[in-house]
Design a binder for these strands. Structure first.
Length: 296
DNA sequence: CAAGGCTCCTGATAGC
DNA sequence: TGCTATCAGGAGCCTT
């Protein structure tokens, strides 16, 4: 599942391979992939044709590609927004590569070089166009302005996040997954960061100390850094690495998916809790549950 | 307004 | 063999 490190790897790859190129045509656009674009597939294709991709930006798990306006006098500047969802990939491939079964859109370039393909098996991801608005040093699309800065953003305010979390009436894992409070953390890295910080995800946020939350933020950044190091090393060597796969980090996981395997710190078997149609993995010894431990 | 739950989707896998 | 049930889950949207 693409979370911040995977999306950042994709961003860097796209910056290397598609920034500065002019779009010739957009084809084979799957209706569900553009369900959040008001004008639908035909409008998306029409608006993209002829525009140049200026750069590739990211906040949390969202990517956007600011577009050069054909009309220099146009007030609004548009960007192509991409979200990978659960299974989305952005692939840069030679234009004659046969389309696979999950192709959702293909962007052809005026230079005739490799094209950009959006491939998404489970179709939770999508593409859309939106105008940029000012938000600090870097403009951000209007429709994702509600997404909080992520912990790798230099402008992320640690003290402010900690204070906000302690005022809320929820549990810490829910707070980590709330993209309007802190972005980029998904189910996998939430479990990994909580394991590192020795916190159970069901702990009420109001009962956590500032020191515990400082440690949790550090844990998130450590996990992100380790994943980026593992996944970001070879993106400019192969086109195929410009995608949303996270398999390279699987061997480094300490909690997520480790049911019944020994905790790397204390040897206790990792447990799983069912929660909201998904799973939480934790060490029952290192990460003491707030109440009586539930059955796994 | 905050919090929490529902839903979209498809392919792999398990169980009968 | 072939069917059904289960699981993976980001985030918009809806209800409470």
């Amino acid at each position: 599942m693409p979370e911040l490190p995977e999306v950042e790897t994709v961003r860097a790859g796209l910056q290397r391979w598609v920034a500065g190129r002019r779009i010739a045509a957009v084809e084979d656009v799957h209706a569900r992939a553009v369900r959040r674009h008001p004008g639908g597939a035909s409008d998306l294709a029409a608006q993209l044709a002829g525009r140049s991709i200026e750069s590739v930006q990211r906040r949390g798990k969202y990517l956007w590609l600011p577009l050069g306006a054909p009309d220099a006098l146009a007030a609004a500047r548009p960007a192509l927004i991409a979200h990978l969802g659960m299974s989305g990939q952005l692939l840069v491939l030679p234009a004659d590569t046969p389309p696979g079964p999950h192709l959702r859109a293909r962007i052809r370039f005026a230079d005739g070089g490799p094209e950009l393909r959006f491939v998404d098996q489970r179709t939770f991801g999508g593409l859309r166009l939106d105008d940029l608005t000012d938000d600090g040093p870097t403009p951000v699309p209007v429709s994702i302005a509600h997404i909080a800065r992520d912990p790798l953003d230099p402008l992320f305010d640690d003290a402010r996040w900690i204070a906000a979390v302690r005022r809320r009436h929820t549990t810490i894992k829910r707070a980590l997954l709330d993209q309007s409070s802190i972005s980029g953390v998904g189910n996998i890295y939430a479990d990994e960061a909580l394991w590192r910080a020795r916190l159970h995800g069901d702990r009420p946020t109001a009962g956590l100390t500032r020191a515990q939350l400082v440690e949790l933020l550090a844990a998130i950044r450590e996990v992100f850094a380790a994943a980026l190091l593992a996944g970001g090393t070879s993106f400019d060597a192969l086109y195929v690495n410009v995608n949303g796969q996270s398999g390279y980090f699987d061997r480094s996981l300490n909690a997520y998916g480790q049911l019944d395997r020994p905790c790397a710190r204390c040897g206790t078997s990792i447990r799983r809790l069912k929660w909201m149609n998904r799973s939480s993995y934790y060490c029952p010894s290192c990460q003491r549950p707030p109440r009586a431990p539930r059955a796994s």
